[in-house]
Amino acid sequence: MTRPPLLLVDAPSLYFRAYFGIPESAAKAPDGSPVNAVRGFLDMISTLIRNRRPDRLVCALDYDWRPAWRVELLPSYKAHRLVPAGDAEVVPDTLEPQVPLILEALAAVGIPAIGCDGYEADDVLGTLATTQPGPIEVASGDRDLFQLVDDAKPVRLLYCGRGVAKLEDCDGAAVRAKYGVPPEGYADFAALRGDPSDGLPGVTGVGEKTAARLIDRYGDLAGIVAAMDDPVAGFAPGLRGKLLAARDYLAVAPRVVRVARDAPLPPVDPTLPRGPVDPDGLLAFAEKWNVAGPCRRLVDALAERA
């Protein structure tokens, strides 16, 4: 009998989507504070538990959304998200105070939420997906996490680009059908294509189709770089020129895009409880912040697994 999956949740990815998906006017605490991200996030977790039926669950956090080691390699990395004249990320004023509330609710339920200094949530997910026993499902709207898909373990990506209710359950074949590369080639593919949302410029004039064709022909970025200096490699002159012009970028970009698999995470017990570990605390939280419905739905989703 196949064991139920370990569900790894990209918490920032989901609570940003919850915040922008529910109007503030539709979810307010008794004191008038918006709780749209709290409401939406808890309902997303409930939906995932109900539909995927995991026996283990961990939420990953961004302790460092723009790690210095990535910026040192590529200064443009997420630079467009910085607040003016500062090092902090631009976060909506009404979302920031909701994040501690989400963590408070998770703690009352008994769902661990962990991060690691110097690493992003992606790296937490990558490390857990590597070190924890499978099967594993990773819930995120971040395309970079397609590189974690591994049919052998297995690890699947529940891609939430259109929301949790319309997630795409992706294995290796789905990644190849979507992008034309296997999961292990996705980081190099993304480096070639670029990603404006992360400040990755890519190679000028190289889009998804060309990037996929290059990965398919040469195997990986190292093979492409080696072929750049081979006069019989068969590059069109224009493409060779574009790749040569981006040589310095291509030397560092894959290390920026690749998710860390060895972040020094704190110990974690991923076991998903059958009910809240602090029911009184969760009840008080629900009443204080006017989120009784989402909290009840989460408790019901836990109980349905019994």
Rank of each mutant, 00 (worst) to 15 (best):
T2A: 12
R3N: 11
R3A: 15
L7E: 08
Y15T: 03
A18D: 05
F20Q: 06
K28H: 09
A29D: 10
P30A: 13
V35T: 12
A37Q: 13
R39G: 01
L42P: 05
I49T: 02
R52H: 11
L57C: 14
A60S: 05
W65D: 07
P67S: 09
P67Y: 07
A68W: 06
R70I: 09
V71M: 13
E72I: 07
L73C: 12
P75K: 10
H80P: 11
V83M: 15
P84L: 12
A85D: 15
A88E: 15
T94D: 13
T94C: 14
L95W: 06
P97K: 08
A108V: 10
I111R: 04
G115P: 11
T131M: 12
V138I: 04
G141N: 11
D144V: 14
L145P: 01
V149D: 09
R156H: 07
R162I: 07
A177V: 02
P182W: 14
G185T: 03
Y186H: 02
F189L: 07
A190D: 10
L192N: 05
P196G: 01
G207M: 02
T210I: 13
R213K: 15
L221F: 00
L221S: 04
L221H: 02
D229Y: 00
D229K: 06
D230E: 12
P231K: 13
V232W: 11
P237H: 11
R240H: 04
L244T: 02
Y249K: 12
L250N: 08
R258E: 13
A263L: 02
A263T: 02
P267C: 08
P270V: 05
P273R: 11
G275D: 13
F285M: 03
F285D: 00
A286C: 01
K288P: 08
V291G: 04
R296P: 00
L298K: 09
